[in-house]
Structures are given as C-alpha cells and as structure tokens.
Amino acid sequence: MSTTPAARPRPIEIVPSVLPADFARLGDECAALETAGVDRIQWDVMDGVFVPNLTFGPDVIAACRPHAKVMFEAHLMVVDPDPMLGAYVDAGCEMLIVHAESVTHLHRSLNRVAELGAKPAVAINPSTPIDAVSHVLDLVDMVLVMTVNPGFGGQAYIATMEPKIAALRQLIDQSGSAGASGSGIDIEVDGGISADTIGGAAAAGANVLVSGSALYRYADGLAHGVADLRCRAEAASRA
C-alpha cells in the first residue's frame, strides 16, 4: 500500500461564462461579474467549425478588458488555434485553453502559449480519454474536462464525467507534476454546472467550476449565485 500523503485540495474557483450575458453591454457585464466576486471570467471562443456556433473575436475581448481586473481565460473551441494564440493574449487573456482534439502538435501549441506569456491549459471533450493529456501535464496549469459537448450554453450536465474527473485528479496527483507555473494543476469543468450539479463535480476533484446559464438565473443576483455555488463546491470538496 502506498504511503504517499493525499494531495492538498486545490482552492475552489467560480468562473462565469459570458455566453448568457447581454452582448450589447459586455464591458458592463464583466464589471458586474467582478463585483459579484468571481475568480476569473471565461470567454467561449467558437469558430462555427470545431463547434456549431460563432462567438467572440479578440477585438471584442480587448474592448472589455479595461472594465475588469479579474483574470480572463479564453476557451478556444476552434480548429487550428495556433495562428490566433497571440491575438488572444494581446487582447488581455491571461490563460488560453486549447482542445487536445483540435491541434496537431499539442506540445508545440502549449509551449507557444507559455512563450507568449499566458498560462497554458488543455481541454478534452466528453468522449476523449484522459490519456490524451497524460503526457502534457508538465506543460499546463489546468486541464478542462468538458461536462457537455461544446458549442452551446444551457446544456444538461453529463454526470458520467465524474469518474473521469476523479481519474484525472488521481493521475495529476500521482504524476507529482507542479504544472507549467510550478504552483500545481487545476481541474476545470464546464457545462451544465448549477446548484444541483456543482457538488458532484467538486467531490470528484474539480476545483475550477464554470457556470453560465445557471449563474445568470439566480433570482437574487450574481453575487448571491457566486456565493451559493462556491459554498456548495467547498462543502462537497471537503466531504
């Protein structure tokens, strides 16, 4: 039996997707999310090819950057993200998430993100096994496990991803990798995260939790939603 101590849980972070926001006033929406206490803001960048939707170019994100100091992450759901990495860093995104399924040379793409001065992260779709990222853990600060098939907001959470999250957490802990920045590797989940589902994802080992539609539906406002989701996730991660 291994005597290696269990890894210390990573801090819980609540991250909104801006897909449900009012696109006519995105700058104000970013400011409101920061005031509500979010840990960072995710930009779902879609190209209409890798996923069936079109969303944010770097100019839109750059226009919103002065409205909030909180970290921006770009989730690049695009075919061949390499040529656009620099544009999203220049737009103010401090973390870039590339999909393992969309790049030809994953090591090269992640190294390029780091060279540009951003935090590298990798995402995997629901059907993609964790083996796809097992050999790049030293190059990333975060792995995103999709809990819906990417492309649209408001989809139902795929609960069968929880064993996959747990297996990834175990893989990360056993690897001993401190990630690209040396401060450890986060697991993010994105898709269907709500008051009803966040506990399962956090209990499985995810600590960065993306919520879009559910967060915006809180009747008492964004701040109440952020606090409630954080409380539920922290309780589940300690259980």
Rank of each mutant, 00 (worst) to 15 (best):
P9E: 12
R10F: 13
V18T: 12
L19V: 06
A24T: 14
D28N: 14
D28E: 15
C30H: 05
A31G: 08
L33H: 10
A36R: 10
A36E: 11
G37L: 10
G37M: 10
V38N: 08
D39M: 02
D39L: 05
R40P: 01
R40Y: 06
I41C: 05
Q42P: 03
Q42R: 00
W43Y: 07
D44C: 01
F50M: 06
P52V: 03
L54K: 05
A63L: 12
R65T: 08
H67K: 07
E73Q: 05
V78T: 11
V78C: 07
V78G: 04
D82F: 09
C93L: 01
V98S: 01
H99Q: 09
H99A: 03
A100V: 03
A100C: 07
E101K: 05
V103I: 08
T104N: 06
H105F: 12
N111L: 14
R112T: 11
K119R: 13
V122I: 05
A123P: 03
A123S: 14
P129L: 09
D131L: 12
D131M: 12
V133Y: 07
H135R: 15
L139Q: 04
L139N: 01
V140K: 04
M142P: 04
M142L: 15
M142T: 06
T147I: 02
V148E: 01
P150E: 02
G151R: 04
A159Y: 06
P163V: 13
Q170C: 13
Q170K: 15
G176T: 08
A178Q: 15
A178C: 13
I187P: 01
E188Q: 15
V189D: 04
G191I: 02
G191A: 06
G192F: 02
G200Q: 12
G200A: 15
G205S: 08
G212A: 02
A214L: 07
Y216G: 03
R217Q: 15
R217K: 15
Y218R: 10
A219H: 12
G221H: 09
L222A: 03
A223R: 14
A239Q: 13
A239K: 10
